[in-house]
Amino acid sequence: MKLILKIWRQKDAKSSGKFVTYNLDNISPNCSFLEMLDILNEQLISQDKDPVVFDHDCREGICGMCSLYINGRPHGPDDAVTACQLHMRKFRDGDTIIIEPWRAKPFPVIKDLMVDRTAFDKIIQEGGYISVNTGGAAEASSILVSKKNAELAMDAAACIGCGACVAACKNASAMLFVSAKVSQFALLPQGQLEAKERVKKMVKKMDELGFGNCTNTYACEAECPKLISRSNIARMNREFFCAKVS
C-alpha cells in the first residue's frame, strides 16, 4: 500500500506544533497501525531525522497507552479496538491519513503524538482506598455478589483508561472514564463503605482538572475500545446525587 501521512509534530510541550506530510510505500495491509508508524520511524532514523513520538506499550489492546486520533476518530476507523489493534487493511491504497494527538486541556501534548494523561491518575488517586480486613485471606465466596452486579462491575472494570472518551467528546468530558471507575466499586459490596466519599471526590477532581461537562452526545460510548456503556454515566449521576443529598 501507498500512504500519505499527515502527522502532528511538536518538539515539546512549550513549542507550537504543525502537521508534517510523509509518503510511505510498500506497506502490507496486514500491518498494524503502530507497525506502520514503526516503519516510518525506521526510515526517519535512517535519514537521521527525529522519529515520531507516540505512546504504546502492550500492543494487544489491554494497557490503554496507545492514543492516536486518526482521521477524525480516536483509535481510527474501526469500532471497539485500540489503535494498536487497528490494521492497515481498514484503509485503502493511496489514502491520506491524518494523525493527531488527543486534544483536551487536561491532556497537554508532551511531544508529537504523546500526551500527558496524569489527570486520569489524579482522579483515580482521589477515589482513595477500599477498606478490607488484613490477616489471612478470607474465603472468597463469603461475600455474596449477585451475578448481574458482578457482570456489570466487570464490564465497568474493563475500562483501560486510554482517554478515547475524552478525545471523542466535543466537550472533552471525562464522564465515561470516571463513571466506569465509580461503577466498578459502586456495584460491589466491598466498595460500599467509602462509596459516597469516593464519587464526590472523584467528580470534584474531574471538574477541577478542567474536563468539560457531559451533554449526552454519547460520542464516548461510540469510540470506547472496551465498549463501556453510558449507563455507567447515569449510575454515577445517581450515586453522586444520593451522596450529595444524604
Binding site: K6, G210, A219
Partner: peptide, 24 residues
Amino acid sequence: IQNWMSRPVRYKVTNKTYTPFLSK
C-alpha cells in the same frame, strides 16, 4: 463556555464519531 475551554487546541479533522445528529 467551560466546554469550549476544555479543548483549547482544536482538531484539524473535526470529529467523525457517530452521534445522534441533533445532540451536538
